[in-house]
């Protein structure tokens, strides 16, 4: 099955190589079409991508002026070929886990009506970028979060959404997922740990947190309003499970 993987990137020379190599190593598991959208990087990101492209024909590269991740994801969606069965995403600082595609593709082959799989993410504080795995001794949390990267979407299922809403500076992924799940898709929650999510020690700035907070609330409000206007839309099924984050401290485990 042909899988288009959209990787938006902006000034990630330190991590984008590992992210792309984590995908390329799985090219025997799926017919991968890796679409890297460079959102105006000014560091060495482009050179690193070019090096990987020299060894992997499944990687495509497009550069655009900096317009933000939402616009970059939409640019990637526009490049998905009609023959791609499935679409997913990877953030340029994360790692696609080995076997991630092999595991979830089997579900689509078994069920032609399946619209998406929604797997797990593992948040870790240290990643071995040579081994493309969690570093020995790191701490992590596994959960079913709000993530485009843990999902595999049938292209026909997301086509009606017409991409990401570029009015969102943050939480455009949540808005996208809410719009999809309101449409009552046929979905499967899998136990596949699809990505290693890199936790950066400096965390999120206060202004970014405020943008995220506003974005989440706006996405939730828009979802409520859509469902009020259109009773054919459904409530959001219980797809998010962040119970590992509950409690103080969260339930970290060793890598």
């Amino acid at each position: 099955m042909k899988v288009s993987v959209i990787v938006p990137v902006y000034n990630r020379e330190r991590y984008v190589g590992a992210a792309l190599r984590s995908l390329v190593r799985q090219r025997d598991d799926a017919d991968l079409d890796i679409i890297v959208v460079d959102d105006g990087s000014t560091d060495g990101t482009a050179q690193i991508i070019q090096q990987i492209m020299a060894e992997a024909a499944c990687v495509r590269y497009v550069a655009q002026p900096n317009r933000g991740v939402t616009h970059a994801r939409n640019a990637g969606l526009r490049l998905v070929p009609p023959e791609a069965d499935l679409v997913t995403f990877l953030d340029s600082d994360d790692i696609s886990t080995a076997g991630r595609f092999a595991q979830d593709l089997a579900h689509f082959k078994a069920d032609p009506a399946l619209d998406l799989t929604y797997g797990l993410m593992r948040l870790v504080d240290h990643i071995d970028d040579d081994q493309l795995a969690a570093a020995p001794g790191c701490e992590g949390i596994t959960m079913r979060g709000v993530s485009l990267t843990t999902a595999l979407f049938r292209q026909r299922a997301i086509a009606p959404l017409k991409g990401f809403d570029e009015n969102f500076a943050q939480a455009e992924d949540l808005d996208f997922l809410l719009r999809l799940f309101e449409r009552r898709p046929r979905y499967l929650l899998t136990d596949t740990v699809a990505i290693l999510y890199r936790q950066h020690p400096d965390g999120m700035t206060k202004s970014a947190h405020e943008q995220m907070r506003r974005g989440v609330l706006q996405a939730v409000l828009r979802s409520a309003q859509r469902r009020k206007r259109d009773p054919s839309l459904g409530n959001i099924p219980p797809v998010f499970d962040m119970s590992a984050l509950a409690g103080a401290p969260p339930k970290f485990d060793d890598c």
């Binding site: 947190h209 989440v216 998010f240 969260p250």
Partner: peptide, 24 residues
């Protein structure tokens, strides 16, 4: 229907001191 989302609480206006998600 989004109770599990709010558990991770990206809503509260708090500092995020160590890079891990905000936990309510």
């Amino acid at each position: 229907d989004l109770a599990d989302l709010f558990l991770a609480d990206p809503i509260h206006d708090v500092e995020e001191p160590a890079g891990w998600p905000v936990v309510r």
